[in-house]
Design a protein around this nucleic acid. Structure first.
Lengths: 214, 214, 214, 214
DNA sequence: GATGAATGAGGGTTCATTCAT
DNA sequence: CATGAATGAACCCTCATTCAT
């Protein structure tokens, strides 16, 4: 490899993380080695470590970036409409879009990242990731509160547990829809999207004041 | 008599898989090496490969066994009561119990195992696993049908998509409850179980004919 | 490399450690990589780890073996004669022989190996090495006691500090003689051995009851 | 005036070597990377190589400096008193002080640096280091000669071999005292310093005309 | 003169797997 | 049938050093 032109740090970081992103997507995080990333990006392995402290940091930053995107997606989703139901659907779409773009982080967000409140041992990115998560929660909390205020959503909902339940349920739904897409197509003659819409609506019924007409 | 000769085979397979099970539980699948299993089981590493084609097969069989247990748990859950709501709750408890006993397979069942209907490349255990999965689906289908018949569950539910939605949502809920237990305790002053009950009930509302009194 | 014949464990351990020994000798411990040892011994790198837990263990065992040899050398030295002065000289010769055979461990024995009495973190070989060290000390203690009893050695010597002083001084002397051999030859027209004899005798005078005749 | 331009050179060299010094002290030479030195000194890694050919040269210069300090220590030690025994003790103290201040070079001085009179391949610093070494030897030679002249030291001592023996023995003694401090404390209930005094006095007896009273 | 950028070479270690016996 | 012995391929990471600017 010829020596590279003087370009800002960020250019290289971006170049590397983009490649890593793609490889993680294609083969999974665990199955992507720093070697792979080096080869694919055209940098030497050692250079990777110039721009990222270690693999963990590289992953951490990618997760953070994905969360920031997710925040944007959800924020924009909420601006799309004033109808509670519409906004709910937009949120769901945002999640679907997010999981399609960042399949691996989607899992991580729910599985791995655990802010250990006792420990002070988290990386800066982990802290930021956590903060973005909180902001997303705030977005959803506002959505629920507005829905309740407008009479669309049941007033007996407990905001925080509801948000967490949503997180878990929606992501679980999207996960199954993605992983079992073929099976779903066969067994119920529904596209992934159709199945998801069914599930999303079903979940909405659990919080809506007014039931769908049957 | 001729069959007797084959019996030791199974004895050894069982012995090995039991040890593997325990190790997977304790340290995770990825972090358990064939070496570990060999040492702990008292067999030589090479012998492991006499009884199992490779690590994948070993894992596959364990997943299958776990699915069989899950089938049993759900079957028993349904016998526990005649009330639809009660039976629903028992099913949820069965899932919780399953995830506590087999945390690693719980994820795999939803994520990894993908019956590829086009491919002919699946292992026998994968096929069996798939079949057990179908039987579990049948159990749930019956539960739904009975609920509809008794008027407890909305008659406009589409059985198969509903089952799949349940699978996804319930497992997503349990996953988040497990992974974020500490955070949940802090943020909403609920135990894992209390949070789960909240979520389970919330989901039930989406299929119940009669809403909970608010 | 063709697969090897079935030979007892010890044969392989010996084969590997012998090669390691030679390489450590030639290039120093730090500058000898497991790769080097693998290549030179004809085993694969992975095989090294079948026979030794890690590099540290390999080194530890080599040090232990060298100490055992040193013990033998000193034990035999003491049997060589009844004269205190003769025995002293034989001990010195034993040390010289040892340092010629195991130059690197010679340093380690004095520098690195530190039994930390507080910690319980030492390898079995470290403990054994320590015990052999104690036995060597016992040998030397007896030598001193006998010398005092026979009136050859000053009765006001404090046994343990004297032994340690000897260890330090003799090894320091041998070290300088070895490292500066060329310089010594130039500057004082003495061979390494002649210089050592001079130093050994000088030290003996510090403990002898009777001074050398001048 | 022309010379002024060269001054900054030395300023930078000093700045870098000072930092290196501290790091070597804290973590050892091998465990201090050029990166560490760059970061700590505020210079870029590449700049280090502007001022020093390589790590070896950097180390070499530090060794030289330490030798210069040692020379000073010994020179001052000799001015401290007129009594031979007193002066001997002061020299010993100087060595102890030196090893405490430059533990890593202490070993190197005796082990590594080998002036190869055949080869012409030594660095300028190595030559200088060698010359300083000679000056130290001269200091010690004078000390011995004065001692002999005053009748305190045996007249049959061969100056040069004695000096070298001293070097080896004293450094070996200090080394063992340092490395085995804990063990010495346990085994003989002496502090490092007490043990050293015992050893120093013992060695003095080998050259003194008059024995200590027993 | 100073450095940002880059890297080749290598470090120790682990693992699933194979095969002759 | 059971296994001792062996390994290729990878893993993440570090380091002293170089060179165009």
């Amino acid at each position: 490899m010829a020596r590279r032109k003087k370009e800002p740090q960020n250019v290289h970081r971006k170049a590397i993380s983009t490649v890593a992103e793609q490889l993680f997507m294609k083969k999974g995080i665990e199955n992507t080695s720093m070697n792979d990333i080096a080869k694919e990006s055209g940098y030497s392995k050692a250079t990777l470590y110039v721009y990222f402290k270690n693999k963990e940091e590289l992953v951490g930053i990618l997760v953070l970036e994905s969360m920031q995107k997710l925040y944007e997606y959800i924020r924009m989703a909420l601006e799309q409409s004033d109808s509670t139901k519409e906004r709910y659907r937009e949120i769901c779409q945002a999640l679907v879009k997010y999981q399609e773009e960042y399949p691996f982080y989607f899992n991580m967000v729910l599985e791995t990242i655990n802010i250990d409140f006792e420990s002070t041992h988290f990386l800066p990115e982990e802290k930021e990731t956590f903060l973005i998560g909180e902001q997303i929660n705030d977005l959803l909390a506002n959505f629920l509160k507005n829905g309740i205020a407008s009479g669309d959503i049941r007033s007996d909902m407990d905001i925080v547990p509801t948000i967490f339940s949503f997180w878990g349920m929606l992501s679980g739904l999207i996960q199954i829809a993605t992983n079992k897409e073929a099976y779903i197509g066969q067994r119920m003659e529904k596209s992934k999207m159709e199945f998801l819409m069914y599930g999303f609506d079903m979940l909405y019924d659990s919080i809506a004041n007014e039931r769908r007409k049957v």
